[in-house]
Design a protein around this nucleic acid. Structure first.
Lengths: 236, 236
DNA sequence: TCGACGCTGCTTACATACAAGACCTGCCAC
DNA sequence: GTGGCAGGTCTTGTATGTAAGCAGCGTCGA
């Protein structure tokens, strides 16, 4: 039998929309009309609607019945929630790292770090590598499956990171930290690895907080207030 | 404006189906035909279908395109994943418990424990209280929002717990452990609280493992094999 | 000038029709 | 008896029609 992972229209639409929301191509507050999206994506309203419902569950979209669907604003509280979750999971995983590391995963992590050092790395590529790196750390401990839960919960965090990194001087520092973390893991110094990873995650979070203080309008409280239709023009 | 939390048909259908799956009223392997469910629930296929998609994302349902939708089997790997996640989150939360506890949450936790001691407590009521208790512990640390993520991820764990508890002698031991955990938190002995909570969660997990060895057929590997239609009769 | 009312156009929520594929069953040839 | 093919019937995936509700805007009256 065919796997459920067959890419149906709904999967394509969902992934397309999710990517556009996370990359801020669809910025917070943007209107997501089922009709417009269906027309522009060349499908009917059904797969679009189902995708919006899923994105709503992730908190990336707010659906107001009979009014409209909108990209949610980056909510500082949700960012903090996601930060707490990922830190809890990633640090706990280190407790379960086996004495002998899976060589395949290790090789993948090293290759990943090589690519992070590539000159002229653009931001989106770095984000992809960063995701894969942290996922790889989880896999080293045998808890790779927990990553999907973290991913689903950290949509707000990712958007905030993008907002932040566009204003920083580069990602070199984060790459250095990745190296330090992996070195500590390989050398068996789990305690040091934990400290390094925590410091790394906190640094990322501090970066976000800095951005929030600098551009508070992007982080407007997501208190259920109606995104007035006119206000969409702010983004257009 | 009306809140999105208005209970639409879809919400009702989703919650109904989710409850039935978690309580094993809809057992692993059961067929979930969109048409049948729609007819029996008195709605159209649309809200049923949307609910099945959401339950599919949680891993509680498997949707095979053009074949059918079925309650997923309790997957031991997923149970372990959920156990790891909840343990990581709940233990990490204890690190952030403030010196002075929120009196409202504390009172709620104490009232909850009282009810857990009620004579003749039925299992489903205990489950509800247990959920609220652990959620309350998270709220004490200010990380109450993380609970929803844990809930979404631990569907398999909950079903396995129900399978297990139906075979045990009662929940008295778990209630005692709840008391010990809260006492440690109140007395400010966070280290002890952590140890107690970890032991408690591990005890629950061990109970599940025991059940799995005793009733392996309920935990059949969820490897994507087709649930043959005829096999549904096993459950009917 | 300002408030109230209703119309218009948009939205999502739900229902239903249609399409395409997979499984089962029975027939048929060998 | 057995293998293979065809048709019937189920399934989900998608498209579209219908219903109900809210926002905005113009108008009208005071």
């Amino acid at each position: 039998m065919r796997e459920a992972s067959n890419r149906s229209n709904r999967h394509v639409v969902y992934e397309t929309l999710r990517r556009k929301v996370l990359t801020l191509e669809l910025p917070p507050g943007a209107s997501l009309s089922e009709n417009e999206l269906a027309a522009s994506l060349g499908v009917s309203r059904t797969p679009v609607r189902e995708s919006l419902i899923l994105l709503g569950e992730e908190g990336l979209v707010r659906v107001f019945p009979k009014v409209g669907s909108f990209v949610s604003r980056v909510d500082a509280a949700r960012v903090a929630d996601a930060q707490f979750l990922r830190e809890a999971v990633e640090l706990a995983a280190f407790d379960d790292i086996p004495a002998t590391l899976d060589p395949a995963v290790l090789a993948e992590l090293r290759a990943n770090l090589e690519q992070q050092r590539a000159p002229g790395l653009d931001l989106e590529t770095f984000f992809g590598l960063d995701e894969a790196f942290h996922h790889g750390l989880l896999r080293l401990s045998g808890h790779g499956n927990a990553w999907s839960t973290v991913v689903a919960a950290k949509g707000h965090l990712d958007r905030a990171r993008r907002l932040g990194l566009h204003e920083t001087n580069g990602v070199g520092r984060f790459v250095d930290e990745h190296h330090a973390i992996l070195d500590a893991v390989v050398s068996g110094n789990i305690s040091h690895a934990r400290d390094s990873l925590r410091a790394h995650l906190r640094a990322v979070f501090d970066d976000i907080e800095k951005t929030r203080r600098r551009s508070p309008e992007l982080f407007a409280a997501d208190d259920g207030s109606v995104p007035v239709r006119r206000s969409i023009a702010v983004w257009e």
